[in-house]
């Protein structure tokens, strides 16, 4: 039986037309780029975004102070948040009802609040409510960032724990490990391998959220990247500080992405580092 085909409109085959269409798109794209490049006033753009003089005067403080502060605040917040999230996730899966309720309420509450509100509450609410408590600025940032991150990370960790096959826990129990020991030595390490990508996401989000530390006020030495960029805007003409500060964020986040890929390959399904025997 012969296969009926629709007659080609232009006398050209479907595949040839598609190929021609792709070629046309390339040509249009190249034209747009050329026109944009010709029309743009490159001197003006460089003046606005990449003034070499301004770049030169921003260094090295932008790295030695601002970049370092961002990294330190993020690391503190992530470490605290991750620990809190692990506790919350285990509470959420506990057989003890009140643990589940407390953890559930905490997660629902804090993942629904804007991070800025959390910073304001921790930064000004706690000193107001507890006049005797004198929180150091770094501790305040650690608490605020940790609270913001923990609500999300708790759910991520819980998902990771649930993704570990039940047979792993059963095997550990059958060898005489208690539920807690089996969870900590067998289940949690596998859960963290599974949730490495979303956990890296969370770390990158916290890197950017650390910019909210500005609401707490800061001396020059305490400024993180965004605040440093903003105050530099008032000192120098143009938007160059924003570009420089932006690139500094990428200096943090892109290596994190690379590290994540490395770890994933290493912990991959077959363990990666197995012997060659």
């Amino acid at each position: 039986m012969a296969v009926e085909t629709r007659p080609a409109k232009s006398g050209m085959s479907k595949r040839k037309r598609a190929k021609l269409g792709r070629g046309a798109q390339y040509v249009v794209l190249v034209l747009i780029v050329i026109v944009a490049a010709l029309l743009a006033d490159w001197g003006q753009i460089q003046e606005a975004f990449f003034n070499v003089e301004v770049v030169r005067s921003l260094f090295p403080t932008v790295v030695t102070t601002a970049l370092v502060n961002t990294a330190v605040y993020t690391a503190l917040g992530f470490a605290f948040g991750l620990g809190l999230a692990l506790v919350l996730a285990l509470m959420r899966m506990s057989s003890v009802g009140p643990y589940r309720w407390i953890s559930g309420a905490y997660i629902e509450f804090f993942r629904g609040l804007p991070a800025l509100l959390v910073f304001l509450s921790v930064g000004f609410g706690i000193p107001n409510a507890f006049p005797n408590v004198d929180l150091n600025r770094k501790v305040t940032i650690m608490l605020a960032l940790g609270i913001v991150g923990s609500a999300y990370m708790a759910e991520t960790i819980r998902a990771g724990i649930k993704a570990v096959p039940g047979g792993q826990l059963e095997a550990a129990r059958s060898l005489g490990m208690s539920h807690g020991r089996a969870t900590m030595t067998i289940v949690i390490p596998q859960a963290f391998r599974i949730i490495l990508p979303p956990l890296t996401n969370e770390l990158i989000l916290l890197t950017k959220d650390s910019s909210l530390a500005f609401v707490l006020g800061a001396t020059l030495a305490q400024q993180e990247l965004t605040q440093f960029g903003r105050s530099a805007l008032t000192t120098y003409p143009g938007m160059t500080p924003i570009l420089v500060v932006g690139l500094c964020y990428l200096v943090i986040t892109i290596p994190l992405g690379i590290l994540q890929q490395r770890l994933e390959r290493r912990f991959g399904p077959d363990g990666g580092q197995g012997s060659k025997s």
Partner: peptide, 12 residues
């Protein structure tokens, strides 16, 4: 000692 149908070796 217990041996499982799905082996259940600790994957990590």
């Amino acid at each position: 000692g217990m041996v499982f149908q799905q082996f259940n070796l600790f994957a990590h």
